[in-house]
């Protein structure tokens, strides 16, 4: 047992779900069973209908209207969409910014957190202390307080430049410079790799040690083991983190809102910030709804592409005929 401090629990795998599948056959869906089931899931179901289904359909309708919030919505057909695609330079700009942010921060975070997870997967004394220290930034990273800290540290006279000055490097105003501002946000995002790392760690603990032992017998080196055992066995977890990472970084808001306010010259004008300003600064609810639906379409297609491509690289252990 490697349990120390923040031990990682054994994940309940398919055996139990097989049992439930078998026992379900025997059960009859009686009236009482149905009633009890729906009574228990009703909090979620009501919330789902009220705060998800209704708003999603409503926003689809609103995306075809002109709606300044104080007056009634007026049907305008596809005008919002044509305006967004043909006349709004900020749409293309914010999309480009968001795509570069996602393309930079997701792979960086995945790579970084996997490396650290492998490091923390060793059995060493005091490992729980290291884990806590490394997890700590992720605990606080999403808060506005850390955005404040970041803004100060990357200022022209900020801490980062003072350290660089020791090495004789003349720093720039990282946040006020259009070519580096987005980089500081990517770095802040990567600094909070904790939860991705913990999920990797849980996945690493699932890999049977025998695989490594028999590979050692065959004379495989560390790198070969990583390439031929760790990566394939971990690929479902990598996939999970990839999908959620893409969806999550598409919605980055607080850091862009507090640290850079979307500037300078829109170099950090994230899509979520664009949408927020349209809706709650200019009160163009119809226009913002159209933006939201375009976001949904983009995120959905990216997720679909991820799932399609996953067939070629994600490796699932065969589990009794299950794919």
């Amino acid at each position: 047992m490697r349990g120390d401090g923040i031990g990682v629990n054994k994940v309940v795998v398919s055996k139990t779900s097989l049992l439930t599948r078998l026992s379900r056959k025997k059960k009859v869906n009686s009236y009482e069973n149905n009633l009890a089931g729906y009574v228990f899931i009703s909090p979620w179901l009501i919330g789902f209908l009220l705060l998800t289904v209704w708003p999603v359909t409503q926003s689809f309708y609103l995306s075809f209207t002109d709606y300044p919030l104080l007056a009634d919505p007026v049907w305008v057909g596809v005008e919002n969409y044509t305006k967004i695609f043909t006349k709004d330079p900020l749409f293309g700009k914010s999309l480009a910014v968001t795509f570069s942010f996602v393309l930079l921060s997701v792979p960086l975070k995945l790579f970084f957190s996997l490396m650290v997870a492998m490091l923390l997967n060793k059995s060493l004394k005091g490992m729980s202390l290291y884990r806590t220290a490394i997890y700590f930034p992720s605990l606080i990273g999403g808060s506005i307080a850390v955005s404040v800290l970041w803004r100060n540290m990357f200022d022209l006279n900020g801490y980062i430049n003072q350290v660089l000055a020791w090495f004789g490097i003349q720093g720039v105003g990282w946040i006020t410079n259009p070519s580096t501002a987005l980089g500081t946000l990517v770095l802040l995002n990567a600094w909070q790799f904790g939860s991705t790392m913990v999920i990797f760690l849980a996945g690493l603990k699932q890999i049977p040690q025998e695989l490594y032992e028999s590979a050692s017998v065959d004379g495989a080196g560390k790198f070969r083991k990583f390439l031929n055992i760790t990566l394939p066995m971990l690929s479902p977890v990598v996939f999970f983190n990839l999908v959620l990472g893409v969806i999550g970084s598409f919605q980055t808001f607080t850091s862009a809102f507090i640290i850079t306010k979307g500037g300078p010259i829109h170099s950090t004008y994230m899509y979520a910030l664009f949408l927020y300003e349209k809706a709650f600064k200019h009160y163009q609810m119809g226009y913002a709804s159209a933006l939201a639906w375009i976001l949904l379409a983009i995120v959905a297609s990216l997720t679909a592409i991820n799932f399609l491509v996953s067939r070629y690289w994600v490796f699932y252990e065969t589990d009794g005929g299950k794919k």
């Binding site: 789902f48 998800t52 209704w54 999603v56 609103l62 969806i247 919605q251 939201a292 949904l296 995120v299």
Partner: peptide
């Protein structure tokens, strides 16, 4: 629903609460 971006529901939710 875990994969649904919050921005899609935020405008109508705001209108509802408003």
């Amino acid at each position: 629903t875990m994969m649904l971006p919050g921005q899609v529901t935020i405008v109508p939710q705001y209108i509802l609460y408003n």
